[in-house]
Design a protein around this nucleic acid. Structure first.
Lengths: 134, 134
DNA sequence: CAGCATCCGTGCTGATACTG
DNA sequence: CAGTATCAGCACGGATGCTG
């Protein structure tokens, strides 16, 4: 079976839900959960419910725009549950759904694996660069 | 524990080995193996050794530039083994290393999981969009 | 056949300013 | 506090042409 389907033109899939939906859905979902901030959001929400600003601080280095975008995408995909309490000042809680928890576990496992293999990768890179420099 | 370190400025990490290496290495590696073409390359090489053009055809829809880039990155990271036979016309074989095989298995597992959860995600999206449209 | 060099458009990214 | 809106920069990815 073919690994992918032919995609005629401009079919890059970022985190945002662009107008071009001509890509296998699984790739989209995969990119959402493995996206730069997606991984971190899932990681943070792993240990329970958090407010917007808490998540922001926990991650540190994410613009509010990207965090909003990431949270919305993950919410839309059914990974994150959003609860807005109608008070002033606003108070919004984010947590993982069942699906989100499983996603977080799996992505987290992959992340931990890569982390533990980093030494090997670094060694491989050195060897590669050394061989190439010659 | 903090999930990430502060990153001062312009710290996006794509597949290319940009001049900006100011990001935790594990994220870089993760992005390499979960990148658009990285996933597909690993998947294709799962079933053995293949030539450049074979991989290209098997994936279908990847420019040679991106394939080259992806293969080089994965080779540098120690996931892919490259064997160039000094003949004319050139003949280059690509295969997975031990590390690459494990990466392929893990990424493949995640990919298959997302694939099987696509229906749930799609349903969640419909619900989300419906709720928002009102 | 395999790979490199170059140019260029798309759109993601993040800073800033504003609203409820 | 939790977003939305707008804008500029630049990285990503694709197309093309050339080399060994």
């Amino acid at each position: 079976m073919p690994v992918s389907e032919k995609v005629s033109k401009k079919t890059r899939g970022g985190l945002t839900a662009g107008p071009d939906a001509a890509m296998c859905p699984s790739r989209l979902v995969l990119e959402h959960v493995t996206s730069r901030w997606g991984v971190l959001v899932l990681a943070v929400l792993m240990d329970g419910t958090h407010r917007f600003s808490e998540v922001r601080r926990a991650i540190g280095g994410v613009s509010e725009k990207m965090l909003t975008q990431t949270l919305q995408t993950l919410e839309r995909d059914g990974f994150v549950r959003r609860e807005a309490h109608p008070v002033i000042p606003p108070h919004v809680d984010y947590s993982l759904t069942e699906l989100g928890e499983e996603a977080a576990r799996r992505v987290g496992a992959l992340a931990r694996w890569t982390e533990e293999k980093v030494p090997e990768v670094l060694a491989a890179r050195e060897a590669y660069d050394a061989a190439k420099a010659r």
